[in-house]
Design a protein around this nucleic acid. Structure first.
Lengths: 349, 349
DNA sequence: CTGTTAGCGCTTTCAG
DNA sequence: CTGAAAGCGCTAACAG
């Protein structure tokens, strides 16, 4: 039994499809009598409108496309949660697509959105402006999340990584650290690169250290463990990790190697993923309101869509905030450490 | 500059739209010559097919609708990850929709999928079969995840909660626990109810305890903390929590109240969310391969769609496995406890 | 092999 | 206020 169409409803109600459509959509110019007849017919037939057809004709899908590099880890689930939250309150649906890797696939994912969404949210820390400009379907509003934006022609919203790195280093220095190392993210990733740059800048100016130890990581826990093992025997009293997950792996490896945290080495991560406050010691980190990042991006996109004007290529930056927890507290800065694992928010500076 | 349509491509290539369509879709019966002409034209115009239109005509969207009760927490992000993984390898997109609460909204979400997806994945531990039967658009293949399935007319895949609860209790008993309490999930949630039932059964048969302590929770960390506080002063030496998050909150509260875990009280959770192995002590739990649950559900749905037959209303059950970590190890069962937080998989029984 | 002709299901002028 | 008709962009018979 094929699902009923608006035609069936019209026929049953003995009106034209036009009237049926109007009645169904609450259009004002319909006699109360016809309206009820149509509504009853629809109900009787258990009619459900075919949204695909509707959007073809209205050129509106009420759907936002979301393209992500991956779905793994808390960072992305938080982003999606934020996007969903904002989308839900506006009655928008989300069409998800992740490009597991290759640029080829990314291009395909981007194109696959054409004709199914009203706008695009693209998160691609490793894609450059040219690629995007070339592969984003023309005429489709888009907001780029968290990507490098130089020379881009679309709106973007990103984290102020350099400032974050500075703040992290400043905090470590304040804790008395003299030899600070950096555990970096994957080369080519905009966020990672900016954090590394910010780190180098900061240690150079604050510590006069022009050749700090920088270990190449890839944002994975394994990379953190490897780095921890490598760092255990070296002359280091502070570490700034490009993300929390690596910091956590690194702390585990260091502890196992007998180094005390924060006693011997103070640690600061980046992101403030939910897990950060559960580990022991609780991880100090640069908090990015991840979910809110997603939320803002969606709001921004909706504004662009509604304005129906050439998307302003403005960039928006979010400043992360320092959250001090046990992993970096060497000078009594942390006031509350209640249990074995400190579940408090931490001191926000 | 409105995006080019297949018409434009056809005109530019000087062929009919039919030929253009055929060439674009790699249909065999097209002269190499025309094919290249079309492809070149498409390239020149930067043509991107309008998938909405295509699916209207093919009655195929290559999209799966996913309806969830919420997006919060690791359980759901893991589920989505699993679904996405399977969808991606089949070239399917995901249309997400979550019903923040009300049945009203859920019904709307379900209907909103009509005409935009080839099948539905519905996850609704608190919805009954009647509601679903009445609100799922007829003729749309659907697989229900993790819900109560009695009397349902659609395929379902769920966790064997009773068996899981039994195994958890058996483990606690084996550890020497005599007075085991249960921290339950929200009433009306199928999983929660089944776990509670399994718990009661188990303590009755294994311990002869016909009136065990059961605290009502709601799957949140706060509920766990409250329960921990309430339980701290009572005569209890083992706790089976209906999910991990509550178990974690409970452990924190108990520890703060001065009770040792697992010394005084052994704890076992349910789910094995990623955080479980990061807390201190690492949490023993009934592992559900959450991501795999999502994966299986998608595979199942795809099979149903391809078979194009009345969806078999078969139920599939996944047996969770016991993972022993520090929180319940009172008899030297855990062989490796390497660091301050044991990051090993735990002993799987 | 290619072009013509109908739709997919819905909305929306444009006349009545 | 209502109906007929023309599409939205694409695919799929059916003839040539």
């Amino acid at each position: 039994m094929a699902t009923a169409t608006i035609r069936d409803v019209a026929r049953t109600a003995a009106v034209s499809v036009a009237s049926a459509s109007r009645a169904l959509n609450g259009h004002p110019s319909v006699t109360p009598a016809t309206r009820t007849r149509v509504l009853e017919a629809a109900d009787a037939l258990n009619y459900v409108p075919h949204l695909g057809a509707r959007s073809l004709s209205t050129r509106r899908s009420n759907t936002i496309g979301v393209v992500l590099p991956d779905l793994f880890g808390e960072f992305f689930s938080e982003i999606i949660r934020g996007i969903d939250y904002a989308a839900h309150r506006r009655g928008l649906q989300l069409l998800l697509s992740n490009m597991h890797g290759s640029a080829q696939e990314t291009a395909a994912a981007l194109r696959a959105m054409r004709g199914r969404v009203d706008g695009l949210l693209v998160m691609s820390p490793q894609l450059d402006a040219d690629f995007l400009a070339h592969n984003l379907p023309k005429g489709l509003p888009a907001v780029v999340l968290n990507g490098r934006i130089e020379g881009a022609r679309h709106a973007s919203i990103a984290i102020d990584n350099q400032a974050g790195a500075h703040a992290a280093v400043a905090h470590l220095v304040e804790q008395g650290c003299k030899r600070i190392a950096h555990l970096s993210g994957p080369k080519g990733n905009a966020d990672a690169d900016e954090r590394a740059r910010g780190f180098r800048d900061a240690v150079a100016t604050m510590l006069g250290d022009h050749d700090p130890i920088v270990l190449a990581g890839d944002f994975s826990e394994e990379a953190g463990i490897a780095a921890g093992t490598a760092l255990a025997g070296r002359d280091v009293d502070g570490i700034f990790s490009a993300n929390d997950i690596m910091a956590i792996g690194c702390m585990a490896a260091l502890t196992e190697a007998g180094r005390m945290i924060p006693g011997d080495i103070a640690m600061v991560g980046f992101d403030d993923v939910p897990i950060a406050r559960y580990v022991t010691p609780a991880l100090s980190t640069m908090r990015v309101h991840i979910a809110q990042l997603g939320e803002s991006a969606l709001e921004r996109l909706v504004a662009t869509i509604e304005a129906d004007e050439p998307p302003e290529a403005t960039a928006e930056f979010l400043m992360p905030e320092l959250v001090v927890r046990a992993s970096s507290a060497r000078t009594g800065t942390v006031t509350s450490t209640k249990g074995p694992h400190d579940r408090t928010q931490g001191r926000v500076v």
